[in-house]
Amino acid sequence: MKIVSTLTPLAVCAVRDAVSYHERLLQSETLRNRADYEAYAVDLSVFLDEITHQYQKIEASLGLPLHDFFESDVPALAYPRKEDDTSDPAGKGLDISAPYAMLMVSSVRDAMLYRESLLREEASQESLRDQQAYLAQLAKLFEWVKDEYRKIESKVGAPLERILHLP
């Protein structure tokens, strides 16, 4: 799976948010099968390290240093991008291996769950609007990632429905 350069910052932040989401889950006292969640959280952290490292290799060509958006509360608003631009003329996106493609799909879903939980906690109207805008961008990324995953689904061997726990 190839994440196009225009979606790369958002994809990196989605995985970061998924890590945060699972860190919160691990703090829950009602969590069952803690070992499974701990192992998954480790896998996500390794994946985040991998795509962060890949991003650092291409950040100069993208003109957007990782620190400009990665540490932002609402990272998607920290970088300019056209709404429906998913082209990649220079081919400078992220290469996601087949096993990590499953994590990419679930990471974007988990990032959306994490951001939805933050929406419930937000107090200021400005912050609420920013979070909603970011969540809308994550939703678009989620649709794009699912479409890309479907292209390699047979190679990966895990149906999208199983990754997303759909009937």
Rank of each mutant, 00 (worst) to 15 (best):
V4Q: 02
T6G: 08
T6D: 01
L10F: 03
A11N: 04
A14N: 14
A18K: 03
V19G: 04
S20P: 05
S20C: 07
H22Q: 13
H22A: 03
H22R: 15
R24Q: 10
R24C: 11
L25P: 06
L26T: 12
L26D: 14
S28D: 14
S28G: 07
E29I: 01
T30V: 05
R32Y: 08
R34N: 01
R34I: 11
R34F: 01
R34E: 11
Y37T: 14
Y40D: 13
A41F: 05
S45I: 04
V46K: 08
L48G: 03
L48I: 05
L48S: 07
D49M: 05
D49K: 09
D49E: 12
E50H: 13
I51G: 05
I51P: 09
T52H: 07
H53W: 09
Q54P: 10
Q54Y: 13
Y55A: 05
K57C: 08
I58E: 13
A60F: 06
L62A: 07
G63E: 15
L64Q: 12
L64H: 12
L66K: 08
L66W: 15
L66G: 12
H67P: 01
D68Q: 11
F70R: 07
F70P: 05
E71K: 09
E71M: 06
V74P: 01
A76F: 00
A76E: 04
R81F: 03
E83I: 14
E83Q: 13
D84I: 03
D84W: 14
D85S: 10
T86V: 12
S87N: 11
A90R: 10
A90G: 01
A90M: 04
G91N: 04
G93T: 02
G93N: 14
I96L: 11
S97D: 11
A98I: 11
A98H: 14
Y100G: 02
L103H: 11
M104I: 01
V105T: 14
S107R: 13
R109H: 06
L113G: 03
Y114T: 10
R115T: 06
S117I: 00
S117Q: 09
L119T: 00
E122T: 07
S127G: 15
L128E: 04
R129Y: 00
Q131V: 03
A133I: 03
Y134T: 03
Q137C: 02
Q137G: 02
L138N: 04
A139W: 01
A139T: 14
A139Q: 10
K140Q: 11
L141A: 04
E143F: 02
E143I: 02
W144D: 11
D147S: 08
E148N: 15
E148L: 08
R150T: 12
E153Q: 10
K155W: 00
V156L: 13
V156K: 09
G157F: 03
A158M: 13
I163T: 08
L164K: 02
H165K: 13
H165W: 10
L166N: 10
L166A: 14
P167C: 10
